[in-house]
């Protein structure tokens, strides 16, 4: 992407450089920003107004908004695509995402069950052993 610097000279009329994928135009930033505002406002509004009686529905929508917003940021602000650096940035991102999922779900899962089975006050209720 650094190599783009020297042929940016021809991109002066910013209206028509559809072939420069790495940088993004003013329009792209504004679209990303507006989407982010909506995707931030929805979860805050839902939680602050207690929109749903069942908090699990709210939690689900809030997390969904977060995931969508992360993707929006990746595309419109970080300009992720399948082509930059021969796809290595995307590969690194996918690899990291897999590790993050393993770390988060693994930690929460293991520690939840540790708490459940090994807390002294719980052993009375769960007298299985």
């Amino acid at each position: 992407m650094a190599g783009h610097a020297h042929h940016d000279a021809h991109a002066h009329g910013h209206g028509g450089h559809g072939d420069a994928p790495a940088h993004g135009s003013r329009r792209e930033y504004v679209i990303g920003f507006l989407l982010s505002v909506v995707l931030t406002a929805i979860p805050f509004a839902l939680v602050m107004t207690n929109a749903f009686a069942d908090s699990r529905i709210t939690a689900g929508i809030v997390m969904l908004c977060a995931i969508v917003q992360i993707v929006v940021h990746m595309i419109y602000f970080l300009h992720m695509n399948t082509k930059s650096e021969n796809g290595w940035t995307l590969m690194a991102l996918i690899f990291t995402a897999i590790l993050v999922v393993i770390v988060l779900s693994g930690s929460l899962w293991v520690m939840y069950h540790m708490n459940l089975n090994m807390m002294p006050q719980m052993s009375g209720e769960m007298s299985t052993m």
């Binding site: 930033y29 990303g32 940021h73 602000f77």
Partner: peptide, 27 residues
Amino acid sequence: LPFVALNTAMLLFSSITYGFAMIAAEE
């Protein structure tokens, strides 16, 4: 929460202004 919303807005605004800085730099 209103406080956190304000904080989030600050960071979001700074993101788009940095984007505008990049565009100005490219021009």
